[in-house]
Design a protein around this nucleic acid. Sequence first.
RNA 1: AGAGGAGUGGUAGAGCGGUUUAAUACACCGGUCUUGAAAACCGGAGACCUUCACGGGUCCGGGGGUUCGAAUCCCUCCUCCUCUGCCA
Length: 424
Amino acid sequence: MLLVQTLREETARVLKGLAKRNLTRAEEWVAEAIAIDKQRRETQRWVDDLKAQSNTDSKKIGELIKTGQTEEANTLKASVATDKQQIKTGEAALVKYEEELKQLLYKIPNVPQADVPAGQGAEDNQEVYKHGSVPTLPSNALPHWELIKKYDIIDFDLGVKISGAGFPVYKGKGAKLQRALINFFLAEAEKAGYLEIQPPIVINEASGYGTGQLPDKEGQMYFVKEDGLYLIPTAEVPITNLYRDVILTEETLPVKNVGYTPCFRREAGSWGAHVRGLNRLHQFDKVEIVQITKPEDSYAVLNEMCLHVQGLLQKLELPYRKLLLCGGDMGFNSAMTYDMEVFSAAQQRWLEVSSVSNFETYQANRLKLRYKNKEGKTQLLHTLNGSALALPRIVAALLENNQTEVGIKIPEALRPFTGFDWIN
RNA sequence: AGAGGAGUGGUAGAGCGGUUUAAUACACCGGUCUUGAAAACCGGAGACCUUCACGGGUCCGGGGGUUCGAAUCCCUCCUCCUCUGCCA
């Protein structure tokens, strides 16, 4: 959530940025928020003055009683009682303003950074980098949903039997490939200085609000009603929330965490022919990198995180492209996002395998994640995260791109982790 | 899950209805002294809201209530500890 202060003091910049997201009512919301905030502050002042008065009067009552001046005490009591009544009214108004303001701020997405292009959707994203060449496949090349049957490594029907559509069962070398990828990604992250975290995979409501999944994506998370807990859609949520209500010292920055978790997404209403096989699932595995930085460092770190992800793709010998997302295609919380897409050769499609974002202070504001700077002032930090990487589409591309007459070839870098060179 | 106990500033720990603007100790930072350090002494130090500022207000696990006045009394939720039960 944005700071009201930012809306108030940098109105022009905020509106210019939000315009790139192609929202219809942003201007109206911002104006409304500023107006409510003004009323809120005026009321706050009024209530504070009344409280100051009744505090001193109450103290005086104590003294009067002690010195036996009961009559004077009673007169004062009456006056405090009327003040109290007004304070109550004022506080009720304050609660109302705060709630209204909060609801409004929840609706306003992050302001895209200056370099983010304006745009409607995916077609306006900018390709900023491309690496590798598309492999030439045998004439009888199969898409991954056929390959997994041919080699009996992933079984969707069994998943349907025990859970439902979108919950595949990994078997034999399929299961081992998953484990190998997870370990490979974690090992690479550790080499890059990330601390491994194994968080819970259910989270409470406060955590959902902390990173912005709530209230924005309410229906996208699985919810355990009895306990009021949500299944995580990404490790970003528990890991970033580790730092909720925390004031870090400057020496601990940047915080670099990595975590492997399963991820759960209801994906309500997003199924179709283009999401066959591993392209979209309700449960999938992902290794996520998270960084918390000083404001002035965050864009250098965004770049560093992209290069880390690109390094992984290169080691896996997958052709990929890097996209700078336009305002209209960017996530609600993000100020700048790069997507990495691998080319899956049999489907002849680019598949998003990573999304690396800088949230600036948007999450930190709600998390109350701050640090004490050199001048001793507490200041909001910047949060960033990126998939490094999401498994299913990587598996899809590996299977499709590396298929040969004699089986599927495992890339060199992964072999120490799989313990086998071929799936055949 | 049941019974009992407890949650106070970075930590320990007093206070149990009105000089608490939360004592005190330790830890922390600055200063004096010292060649330097230690010790000793002096001083400082939290968060949030509001204000250009001075200042004011709020915060004793969360929320609600009683009272002129609540860390202190009541209700409720959460967490931790002990015992019993259950269970990878």
